[in-house]
Design a protein around this nucleic acid. Structure first.
Length: 591
RNA sequence: GCGCCUGUAGCUCAGCAGGAUAGAGCAACUGCCUUCUAAGCAGUAGGUUGGGGGUUCGAGUCCCUCCAGGCGUACCA
């Protein structure tokens, strides 16, 4: 799994060029040659080509290495592409980085794509690309489309991503929405990168919570038949509980009024959680999030998966009985204490079914399992890892993405949310009030592991100037230009022969560079499983488009310039659509 | 007590794999609609990156420590 190997590249660099490093206490590993061949085989970013050119130049001056660092400078004034190679070599060669930079520059043989190659700062080499090269890459983007924008990093490897998995005991709240937005975006991202992605929702339809829900509904039902009932201590108080009781009463009359809960529990529990589950499905669907598979926890009990999983562990001597409970030796695999699977009252803990669930997932042949959890479950990670190790699985296949809390506020005042007490603002309430696109966008404009303040008043106030509109507006504007072009009979399709020489102003060149480097951002987002990088890229892209649009006419220029600018706009539109689709945000033709 | 996450502009947040002058939106202030959508553009102002050490040619980024906030430390789910 590439995520876990990211640091090896750095090590490789240092080892290869012989710099003594502070990683030397690590296992004296064989030379890592990971990722390089893979990378050159599959990715075709402009930076890769520069790397090749640099490697060749280095060989020319007698330095053998298999990796050089190349980056896009923060400031445009510093060039289009840059490398700190000379500085990294300075120590090894005992030479001034500036001198090394000079010899590297002298050894570079391919001047035809560069406008300039300059030495700068402490030993950077900065490359400025020729407009003609930029034009050719833009054409490539347009003609290849997804082939250009979606370098195949996944190669069909199977990833399962499990997210939301909310207890079916009430409507989704805003925190679930954050998990849903993230999970869907990660799934879109990875699937665009050539992974085979399955989205799964794990249904906690067994155990205490659904039972409490059923019992709560049962009590409300009894109240409707004027029969006394002790409401369960930790029962659910939301209005929806009473509504479910009303439905049951309407369909069944007073039929159950004299029953004890344990006599009718199955009916009430099933009725209640299934109703809530379908609400959840609808909430998710309206939020634009669809799942491929829904795994029932109850089924893991009824079809023997849980018992089988425990038996397997017992056969390995990893299960023991103590104090009338059944324990798993989690400490043998790095957890801080052993964990109970079956309580002394005979009830299974959730951990028991979670063991079965994760073993099942491993056995289903995924190359990677991603779990998106609320950060309040982080303490659970070591024991799940322990399970995977105990089951003989590859622990590195599990990636847990923690989503921090959403702190809902209204005008700076925290809104308390308690599902059991029935006091909460649902995801649906929020999207009704502020809109789906804005809600999703806000979730994807933050790193998942930072707490998110979601103030209804602020969000509504800022809605009219929300960054999501900034991006969508760029898209709509382009669409509108194309409408006008069609009205004026200007052809709006392009190919490799379209003349782009006219694209020469600073605004145009900046836009082109931003566009052709999209795959870099995309691959970084894929590698880190962080869709918010796409969000920020899109804001930057729109931030280059609007000034271009304001400053230059598109349709009123002479024909070839109009055509060139239209093609540039077409590319902006393609990339915005690509990004917004990954984020799950709509692309309105008109605004 | 121990563990995990967070601390960057007045507010909400980025900072791409250790690179060069730390960015954006909102809020504030100045300008721009007889021209393809002003949900836009141009500009001003705003910072000891929580504090202190360390590693490095180079630290917002890595290490140590302290401070602050959140979460977790069950035969709970």
């Amino acid at each position: 799994m590439e995520t876990l190997h990211t640091h090896h590249r750095v090590h490789t660099t240092r080892r290869t060029i012989g710099i003594s490093n502070r990683f030397s206490h690590e296992p004296a590993a064989p030379f890592f040659s990971i990722n390089f061949t893979h990378k050159y085989a599959t990715l075709k970013r402009s930076e890769d080509m520069i790397e090749d050119i640099l490697l060749k130049a280095l060989r020319e001056i007698g330095i053998e290495t298999d990796f050089v660092e190349v980056e896009i400078p923060k400031h445009e004034a510093l060039g289009d592409i840059s490398t700190p190679t000379a500085m990294l070599l300075a120590k090894k060669l005992r030479k001034n980085p500036s001198v090394i930079a000079d010899s590297i520059i002298a050894a570079i043989k391919e001047p035809d794509i560069f406008d300039s190659i300059e030495k700068a700062g402490a030993g950077f080499i900065n490359f400025r690309l020729k407009p003609s090269y930029l034009h050719s890459k833009l054409k490539q983007l347009y003609t290849e489309g997804e082939g250009y924008l979606r370098p195949n990093a996944g190669k069909g490897r199977k990833i399962q991503i499990e997210f939301v998995s909310a207890n079916p005991t009430g409507p989704l709240h805003l925190g679930h929405g954050r998990g849903a937005a993230l999970g869907a975006a990660v799934a879109n991202l990875l699937s665009a990168a050539g992974f085979s992605v399955e989205k799964e929702f794990y249904i906690n339809d067994a155990g205490r919570q659904v039972k409490l829900l059923g019992e709560s509904v049962f009590c409300r039902y009894k109240e409707r038949t004027n029969t006394p009932c002790d409401f369960p201590k930790d029962g659910y108080h939301g209005d929806y509980v009473d509504e479910l009781a009303g439905e049951i009463h309407k369909d069944n009359g007073d039929k159950f009024s004299n029953a004890r809960f344990d006599e009718v529990s199955e009916f009430f529990i099933d009725y209640a959680y299934k109703a809530m589950l379908s609400e959840i499905k609808k909430d998710l669907s309206d939020f634009g999030v669809e799942f491929d598979t829904w795994q029932s926890e109850k089924e893991l009990f009824t079809n023997g998966t849980v018992i089988e999983a425990i038996k397997r562990l017992r056969d390995k001597g990893l299960i023991y009985d103590q104090d009338s409970a059944v324990w798993f030796k989690a400490t043998a695999f790095g957890d801080e204490k052993d964990r109970v699977l079956i309580k002394s009252d005979g009830q299974y803990t959730y951990f028991a079914s979670d063991i079965a669930y994760h073993v099942l997932k491993l056995n289903r042949g995924f190359d990677e399992l991603i779990n998106i959890w609320g950060a309040d479950h982080h303490g659970y990670i070591p024991r799940i890892r322990a399970v995977i190790k105990a089951a003989g699985g590859d622990e590195s296949k599990l990636l847990v993405l923690l989503v921090q809390m959403v702190m809902l506020q209204r005008g700076g005042v925290p809104v308390q949310m308690s599902k059991r007490a029935g006091e909460f603002v649902t995801l649906r309430d929020v999207t009704n009030e502020v809109g789906k696109d804005i809600t999703r966008f806000i979730f994807l404009t933050r790193r998942p592991d930072s707490q998110l303040e979601f103030d209804m008043e602020t969000v509504k106030k800022e809605s009219s100037e929300n960054p999501v509109y900034y991006i969508q507006y760029a898209y709509a504007r382009i669409n509108s230009v194309f409408e006008k072009a069609r009205e004026r009979q200007i052809p709006v399709t392009f190919d490799g022969t379209t003349d782009l020489c006219g694209l020469s102003t600073p605004e145009e060149l900046l836009l082109i560079k931003k566009l052709i480097f999209y795959p870099t951002t995309f691959l970084n987002a894929v590698r880190t499983r962080e869709p918010h990088r796409i969000t920020f890229y899109l804001q930057e892209l729109a931030g280059l488009f609007h000034p271009f649009y304001y400053k230059h006419r598109i349709l009123d220029e002479e024909e070839s310039l109009t055509r060139a600018r239209l093609m540039l706009c077409a590319c902006v539109k393609i990339v915005i659509a690509e990004g917004l689709n990954i984020l799950g945000v709509s692309t309105p033709d008109k605004m």
